[in-house]
Amino acid sequence: MLVQMYNVSKTYLNGVKALNDISLKIDRGEFVFLMGQSGAGKSTLMKLLYREELPTRGQIFIASRSIVRMKTREVPLLRRNIGVVFQDSKLLENKTVFENVAFAMHVVGANRREIRERVEEALGLVGLKDKRDCYPSQLSGGQQQRAGIARAIVNRPLIVLADEPTGNLDADTSWGIMELLSEINKKGTTVIMATHAQDIVKRLGKRVIVLNEGRLVADSMPGESIA
């Protein structure tokens, strides 16, 4: 098992109860949708996985290591194995597409040759090779999201966490992004994606976990119908 959560609850300092007694397991190579209304706890669950937040109660294991008991200085190593894609792509405005992707590799101390090769490869995969010297403001929303995905996968993480990556995009562009994520998943990377988009979930036919007010209310495998 790649991800294991046991009785995880999260209450924020301001008293908001975001997650309530969540237990789930996700296997290596799975593609999992995380569904639920706004405020259901999808983003909190994501944040717990890349340890931006710590659970109030419960245990979380990634690749059999407890990330709750993990020391602060080990957190960077955890995060190098997790790629995060945001709804607003979070590209740095003052860096080109190439630099934005290369940035993630500089951070882990890769050498220049390695960086050039891997960034070219990632940009090829997301179809942005010809946009490498553009700044984010010169890209369309879909292209920005592709650049964000390239940054998330360039370090070859075990898991890609995508928090509503199609939230700002029209249907056609969204589908392009979904195809890209499916392709990444087919290469062996586990993908966990939070979304509102019912049509995409239905069309792709993958495992769906549904959250409601911080509780896990449904976990259906492909083919099963969602309540």
Partner: peptide, 16 residues
């Protein structure tokens, strides 16, 4: 701060 947040997110150590 956005840049620093992203650096931390992709696994930069504090010293980096």
């Amino acid at each position: 701060r956005k840049e620093i947040y992203l650096m931390k997110l992709v696994g930069a150590t504090n010293w980096f």
